[in-house]
Design a protein around this nucleic acid. Structure first.
Lengths: 211, 211
DNA sequence: GCGGTTCCGTGATATATGTCACACGGGCAA
DNA sequence: TTGCCCGTGTGACATATATCACGGAACCGC
C-alpha cells in the first residue's frame, strides 16, 4: 500500500525543489476519483486547483441545451489552468471536469498557488507551462472544429484517446463520442463503420478496437 | 503633442502602483501601429509582450492552406496571453496579430514580465487577469463555432465589432468577414443580405451600417 | 469618359451534416 | 423462455454550408 506522500514525492521529484514538495505534501489534499466521476460541474465555485498525479481528466464545455464540446484532456502532472486564477470576481465555473479513468490528484488551494509563485521558481515555471499547454490545446481544438471535416476530427479523436489510455481498445459508446464532438450518434456510427470497412478498426458493442 | 510617458501614465494610473508605472516607462518600448499592420506573424519569435494602450488588435489562427480563424480581440489595457510565457522551448508563434485600427502599445520584454510578477502585486494580478480573459474568450469562440449556426455567429461577430470600434458603421468587406469566420464570401454576402432585408443593417460597398 | 479592378448579388448545384424512423441483436432480469 | 433496454446499422430525407459561374455596380487612375 502506497501512502499519499510517497505518491506525491514520486510524481514531483525532479520537477520541484524539495521544499516545495514538502509544502505540497503539507497543504495539498490528496484524492482519488473513479472513472466517470465529476470533479467540477458548471455553476460550482472553484476554490482549489487540481494537479493530476496519475490517470486522466477530460474538460468539457457544455452549452445551454445539453450539448458539450471537448476542450482538452489533462493527464500526468498537468493541471487545469482555468481554475488557477483565483477568479477575483468569483464567477462560478463554466466547465465540466470528468475522470476518464481512475485518477489520483492533489488539490492546492488557490491562495497557495498564488503565494508559491514568488517563493518557488519551479512552481512559477509550472504554472506558466500549464497555461501555455492549455492555450495550445485550445488552439488545436479551435483549429480542428473550424477547419476539419468530421471524419478527420474523428480520427484525431481516436488517436488522442488511445494515447491517453495507453491502449488500443476503447470502451466507449458511439453516443458518447458524438456528445464530445458535438454531433449526433448516427453520424459517428456511419463514420466509424466507414473506418471499419477500410480496416482501420474493429467495432463491437461498447468497444472500438484500433488496428 | 502628448509624449509617450504621459500616455503610459494616463493609461496605467489607478491600475498599477507608481513604482511599476515608472519601470514600465523606463523599460517598455512605446510603439504606434496603423490599421492593418501586422504585429506578429506565424513563425516569428516572440521576445516581448505587447500591452494595448488604445486601439485594438485582432488575434487570428491561420491554418496550412490560407484559412484563418479569429481567436479574440485585444483592446484597452489588454495584453496577449499567448506571448506572456517566455516560451522556454522557444517555439515560434502560431498566431497572427493585426491592428484593427490605429493602435498604441507598449512592449515589455518577457524577462521583465516574469521578474515583475514577484516585485509588483498589481502586475501579478494583471498577468493573471489577462490569462483569465483570454481563456474566457477562447471558450466563447469554441462555443460559437461548435454550437451556433453561421447566421447567429455573424450576428455576434457584428456586435463585437461595433463594440470594439465604438461605432455603428463598419468599414469592412464581406471577404474579410468570411476569412475571419472561416467560411466563404458568398455565404456571408447572402446572410448579410438577409439581415438587411430584415432591417437589421444597411449595406453598401466596403461598409455595413448597423441600425 | 474609359478600362480595369475590386466588391457585391444571386442562381444552380454539390457536399456534409443533422434528423427521423425503424429494424436488429445481445444481454439481462424476471 | 420471454420480454425489454440499450447500443448499433442503415435508408430516406431535411438542412446548412461550400463551390461554381456569372453579371453588374462602385471606385480608381488615367
Amino acid at each position: 500500500m502506497i501512502n499519499d506522500s510517497q505518491v506525491v514525492n514520486a510524481a514531483f521529484r525532479g520537477s520541484f525543489e524539495p521544499a516545495l514538495i514538502e509544502e505540497i505534501n503539507r497543504i495539498g489534499i490528496y484524492q482519488e476519483v473513479e472513472e466517470g466521476e465529476y470533479l467540477i460541474r458548471p455553476g460550482s465555485y472553484i476554490r482549489s486547483v487540481p494537479i493530476i498525479l496519475s490517470g486522466s481528466i477530460k474538460i468539457m464545455r457544455p452549452d445551454a441545451v445539453g450539448n458539450e464540446a471537448l476542450l482538452y484532456y489533462l493527464s500526468g502532472l498537468d493541471s487545469c489552468a482555468i481554475s488557477m486564477t483565483g477568479s477575483p470576481d468569483n464567477k462560478p465555473s463554466e466547465i465540466t471536469a470528468i475522470a476518464e479513468e481512475k485518477t489520483r490528484l492533489i488539490f492546492i488551494p488557490v491562495e497557495k498557488v498564488d503565494e508559491w509563485i514568488c517563493r518557488f521558481p519551479t512552481w512559477k515555471q509550472f504554472v506558466f507551462r500549464t497555461y501555455q499547454r492549455r492555450f495550445d490545446d485550445m488552439i488545436a481544438t479551435i483549429d480542428s472544429i473550424a477547419f476539419k471535416k468530421l471524419d478527420e476530427r474523428l480520427l484525431t479523436y481516436l488517436k488522442k484517446k488511445t494515447q491517453s489510455c495507453q491502449c488500443t481498445v476503447l470502451q466507449i459508446t458511439h453516443e458518447e463520442i458524438a456528445r464530445e464532438m458535438a454531433t449526433s450518434r448516427e453520424v459517428i456510427s456511419r463514420l466509424l463503420k466507414q473506418l471499419e470497412r477500410v480496416g482501420y478498426l474493429r467495432l463491437s458493442r461498447n468497444k472500438i478496437e484500433i488496428l
